[in-house]
Design a protein around this nucleic acid. Structure first.
Lengths: 249, 249
DNA sequence: CCAGTTATTTGATTTCGATCAAAGCAAAAG
DNA sequence: CTTTTGCTTTGATCGAAATCAAATAACTGG
């Protein structure tokens, strides 16, 4: 299990955490070692596999260690809306709820560090700083979800695509410490269908708008999954919003 | 300040709380009285008044005591999306954030029980159960926001209207303990414009779809603000979803 | 009660994105 | 190498909701 603070400080680390091996609670000070090994168990999911079914019993509680998973809900006739993306260090499940409100689906090979509910509750109770951190993370997610509501409710297809690309570009830039006016290149971690389900659009519209942005010179494509953004500011402009959305932040 | 638990148990009550007068923390047991009077202050806002401006310094932290407020964000060209409704007992603001992410606007006359940031942080630190409660509330809001994303991204105009009416009808029924097959009557607390901003629609479409639902016999109107739902199940059906959304739950 | 806003409804038309349809492409399977 | 399969692009058409426009209804303050 990995919990990353706002300032990127690592609070608790698991054995299979990609960053480090020791289980340490940084909040409680380095002196306080949390023995997670007894209460956690790792589970691996194949690409496309459903980790949690909406409406079913919510048994999984823990955090994503490796891979990317999607949170989504579907209407009876199949219309689907993605409502969140889970990256390593994000939580799955929640305390005090019996029924899962959303589907959780693995896009890659996903590894989850899973806890038993009573033991996780205990861990939270005995680690106030963890609860505080959980609260902050949840509030951030809430802000992101609401930001996304603005996109879903009011943005045009072109603005939706630009917003999504901007968010991914921003992630990439943050990692490479590039400036906004530099070119950014990245690989789309999503299929056109997933993008469509995210943005409340159809596959065809996604494809068309990407083509349109290409024709306008806002982006260029090496292949369908590799995007190059020559001018990030220009892309932000197309997103319609002054700020950057930040759904996947 | 009023914090209501999932089971409707009241945790902390302020002087002007509509339910009771004493300031009591029920979680910490009735023995533990929380002296809120020294750190809180009441503020009243007129209908239409903006309590918090998105992008500006977030100074308000506290909870809504009376009235209804909306949470919204706008695009530079004026397109607006409502992202939440605040009812009495709901929180405004959050710890550890300098800039307000959304506008908070009073629809009625609104009374807010306001705290100073450092003192509120202190209150949270010394009241672990309060933090736990805050976490639960925030997670519920997150689930609701995501549910709303499904509506915004994938539902038709008719389904959107039906969903909103169903949520309000459900609230009304819960208060009157009526059964789903009974008729429900309620007053819309929102203008057509507010509804439109909520649902990601225009005023005209809202009006048209309400007329259409009336013509289909799903609802009837005494006047534009007073809705009668003869068969709640029928309305739920029109909402497209099996479950009830619950955005305003 | 009336003039003057401010909501709401209804109608006509347009437009953006969905739908229907088919072709191109690339990776995996045989 | 060819076939299959899944993903993506592009084209033609359709339709739901937006936009433009105007009438009606409801509320405001004088």
């Amino acid at each position: 299990m990995t919990v990353t603070a706002a300032n990127s400080e690592v609070l608790i680390r698991c054995g299979e955490c990609p960053i480090r091996v020791q289980a340490v609670c940084a909040y409680c000070g380095p002196s306080e070692l949390v023995s997670l090994d007894e209460i956690k168990s790792y589970k691996t999911y194949k690409p496309g596999e459903t980790i949690v079914w909406a409406g079913e019993n919510l048994t999984v509680i823990g955090s994503l260690v490796k891979g990317i998973a999607t949170l989504s809900r579907s209407l009876p006739d199949g219309r689907r809306q993605m409502v969140g993306l889970l990256f390593p260090s994000d939580f799955i499940g929640r305390t005090g709820k019996r029924v899962a409100p959303f589907d959780v689906v693995a896009t890659n090979e996903v590894v989850i560090c899973q806890f038993r509910q009573p033991q996780f509750d205990q861990l939270i109770k005995t680690t106030p700083s963890l609860e505080r951190r959980l609260l902050d993370m949840t509030m951030d997610e809430l802000d992101s979800a609401r930001e996304w509501m603005l996109l879903l409710g009011r943005k045009t297809a072109r603005e939706k695509i630009a917003s999504l690309l901007a968010i991914i570009a921003r992630r990439t830039m943050a990692l490479s410490a590039a400036s906004p006016r530099d070119g950014v290149a990245f690989e789309l971690p999503l299929t056109r269908e997933t993008m469509a389900d995210y943005l409340g659009l159809t596959i065809e519209t996604v494809s068309r708008q990407i083509s349109a942005l290409k024709k306008s010179g806002v982006i260029s494509l090496r292949d369908s999954r590799h995007i190059v953004v020559p001018d990030f500011i220009r892309l932000l402009d197309e997103a319609g919003d002054d700020s950057d959305g930040g759904f996947i932040d």
